[in-house]
Structures are given as structure tokens and as C-alpha cells.
């Protein structure tokens, strides 16, 4: 790659962002629950039954081509002003070709499962395991849903807001003084 390659300035980026939203509204308008733009970043909130369909469209549409799933993570909204539904799973998408980012979100309550996107992007496998491990959000259809960072027999999900920062695991407390 050469140094002289042109880069999009922020205005062009803003237009490109609206192109993404335009295409999304055309093709999956019924699926978009809410759209937010803050600090030049677009966030789209979906309901869980639409997630896989929208993801597949975003990946396969040549104008969008979100072929790279950067990251999947979770947020426990327990202490936010609007705490229901409690959990939010966040997908940070990237298009290598168009150099664009997009954030998708799905909100669920305790015990509700989210369909896996491992069929769309293979990389989601470990990310979803991490969200399952640390937040306790299950993923439906995941090929290998096990804890990933915490031990297999761990109780609780550490990144939940009602999980104390300084918690002693039970095996530690039972140790003779």
C-alpha cells in the first residue's frame, strides 16, 4: 500500500454512515428498533429474532460488506436509569473494504437466549462464550457454549452489576483458618 492513498474525511464518513442506515432501512426496516448516533458512531438496536437475518444481510450486501466482526461484548444495565431489559449484547462490526464501523445491539432479560451469530462470523464463538461466562446470557445454537475465562464449576457471573467486586469464592471461605 502506498502512502498517498486517499482517506475519507469525516463529512464523507458521515454520508457513508447514512448510506448504511439507508440500506438497512430499505432491506430490514421492520427489524430496526432504535438508531442512535453519538460521536460519529452509529448504534442500531435490534430484537433478537431479527439478529441473524440482519447480520447476514450486513455481511453479504456488497454495498455494506461488514465482513469483519471486531468484537462482541455485554453490558449489564441493572444500574442504568432504564434497567429493563437487563442485558445488552453489543456487536462491533467492521467492513474491511469500505472501512466502516457499525454497532448492533440486542437486549434481553435474565434467562432469555440470543441466537448465535457464529454461523455468520466464525470469530463470534469465543466472544459469545465470554459473554455467557461473565454475564450469564445464553446463546442459542452455539456450537460449544462453555465458560471460557472462569473455571467450569464457578458460581455466578462476575461482570454482572450485582456481583461484588471483592467476592470470595466459597472454596476459599471453607479453607480452615
Amino acid at each position: 500500500m502506498s502512502d498517498s492513498e486517499t482517506r475519507t474525511d469525516s463529512r464523507e464518513e458521515a454520508q457513508a454512515e447514512s448510506l448504511v442506515l439507508q440500506r438497512l432501512r430499505e432491506q430490514c426496516g421492520d427489524a430496526l428498533r432504535e438508531v442512535k448516533v453519538w460521536r460519529n458512531e452509529t448504534t442500531v438496536i435490534l430484537s433478537r429474532q431479527d439478529l441473524v437475518r440482519v447480520c447476514r444481510f450486513l455481511r453479504d450486501d456488497p454495498d455494506l460488506a461488514f465482513d469483519f466482526l471486531s468484537d462482541v461484548t455485554g453490558v449489564d444495565r441493572l444500574k442504568l436509569p432504564q434497567a429493563s431489559p437487563r442485558f445488552e449484547v453489543v456487536y462491533n462490526l467492521y467492513s474491511l473494504q469500505h472501512r466502516r464501523r457499525l454497532r448492533l445491539k440486542v437486549r434481553v432479560d435474565e434467562g432469555e437466549a440470543i441466537p448465535t451469530v457464529t454461523g455468520v462470523w466464525e470469530t463470534a464463538n469465543w466472544h459469545e462464550r465470554e459473554v455467557y461466562d461473565l454475564f450469564g446470557v445464553p446463546f442459542e445454537g452455539h456450537p460449544d457454549l462453555r465458560r471460557i475465562l472462569m473455571p467450569d464449576d464457578w458460581e455466578g457471573h462476575p461482570l454482572r452489576k450485582d456481583y461484588p467486586v471483592e467476592a470470595s469464592p466459597r472454596w476459599w471461605e471453607e479453607e480452615p483458618a
Binding site: W38, R39, E41, S70, D71, T73, V90, N92
Partner: peptide, 17 residues
């Protein structure tokens, strides 16, 4: 609000959400 910022770390894309 929320932001995702990525940098090119020696190992690859290091993103902070």
C-alpha cells in the same frame, strides 16, 4: 454514551468499548 475506539497494537486491533 458509548464509544468504541480501536488502535493498532503490536498484536493487532486493540479496541476499547
Amino acid at each position: 454514551g458509548e464509544v468504541y475506539h480501536a488502535i493498532e497494537a503490536p498484536k493487532g486491533e486493540l479496541g476499547c468499548y
